[in-house]
Simulated assay, not measured.
Amino acid sequence: MPRSNRRRPEQPRGDGFERMLAGWKRTETRRGSSWTVQPISAAQAVKDYTCPGCGRTVAAGTAHVVAWRADGVMGDAADLAARRHWHTACWRIA
């Protein structure tokens, strides 16, 4: 059977909130608060961020974790907007 050279329509990716929730994540408790933690692979890390643990840059292309409050009173969208990108080692010792 011959191969089709037609382009397939792209699947909608959704907004940042939906994409963030779609990935693998876990819930951890730190200092009496619940946090949602999602690992980010080096391939997914496309921007530079400042790690709140050490104050240094989490460079693009560096695997790290993203954490946000899981028990906030303002709702999921507000908690996700307040997410922070941490070096994996900084998150472990926080």
Rank of each mutant, 00 (worst) to 15 (best):
P12V: 10
P12M: 07
P12G: 09
R13W: 00
G14I: 04
D15A: 02
D15R: 09
G16K: 06
G16T: 03
G16I: 00
G16D: 10
G16L: 02
G16C: 00
F17R: 12
E18N: 06
E18C: 00
E18Y: 01
R19V: 04
R19M: 04
R19P: 06
M20Y: 06
G23D: 13
G23V: 01
G23A: 13
W24R: 13
W24C: 02
W24L: 06
W24N: 11
K25N: 08
T27Q: 14
T27V: 15
E28T: 03
R30D: 01
R31N: 13
R31G: 04
G32M: 12
S33W: 09
S33T: 05
S33H: 15
S34C: 01
T36Y: 01
T36I: 13
V37S: 09
V37E: 07
V37I: 13
I40N: 10
I40V: 15
I40K: 15
A42R: 15
A42T: 11
A43N: 14
A45C: 15
K47S: 12
D48T: 06
D48Y: 05
Y49D: 03
Y49K: 01
T50N: 10
T50W: 04
P52K: 12
G55L: 06
G55E: 10
R56A: 11
A59V: 09
G61P: 14
G61N: 11
G61Y: 07
A63W: 07
V66H: 12
A67T: 08
A67V: 05
R69L: 06
R69E: 01
A70V: 02
A70N: 15
G72A: 05
G72W: 02
G72N: 06
V73M: 09
M74E: 15
M74Q: 14
G75R: 09
G75L: 01
D76I: 01
D76M: 04
A78E: 09
A78Q: 10
D79T: 03
A81N: 08
R83F: 00
R83M: 01
R83S: 04
H87A: 04
T88P: 01
T88W: 00
A89N: 12
A89P: 05
C90R: 12
C90H: 09
W91R: 11
W91H: 10
W91M: 04
W91L: 02
I93R: 15
